[in-house]
Amino acid sequence: MPKTLHRLVYYSKNAIDLPKDGLEAEVRQILTAARHNNPALGVTGALMFNQGCFAQVLEGPGEGVTRTFERIQRDPRHRDVMLMAFDRVEERGFATWSMAFVGASAEGRARYGGIAAESGFDPSRLTGSRVFQLLRDLVVEEEDQPCVGA
């Protein structure tokens, strides 16, 4: 699994027990750390945080994705991490983002809220590729809007 491009999608539950302000600060910190660490590993991706859940796409060389995911796995700020996909892919979906963030715009919230309601917050009812597509659509929509921590 040397240089081949991989994509990993996971979904987890928020374990940050803080009021709204503190929560936003934590998510900002997560994004800052991701944007700091990811370029060296060749990792790009997108993070969605909303309604107490995280969903994230990581893409890059297998080794970089594996190391990044292992670091994420050890993070106590989330729990019930569910790995939805880890596959070889031909190209990146977030080539220009060290870590795009979805959840800033009202529209994104509405869209995601709808999906969350539709799936009843049951991650097993969303597939990895569905989450990937969802994130990509939302990132494209939000591309021109200011992102938290950007």
């Binding site: 297998g62 594996t66 106590p76 991490v81 880890f86």
Partner: peptide, 17 residues
Amino acid sequence: RRLVDLIGRTYIVDGHM
């Protein structure tokens, strides 16, 4: 509690989940 949660989380080793 933390160890049970943490060790029980998925590993990716050499491409294997």
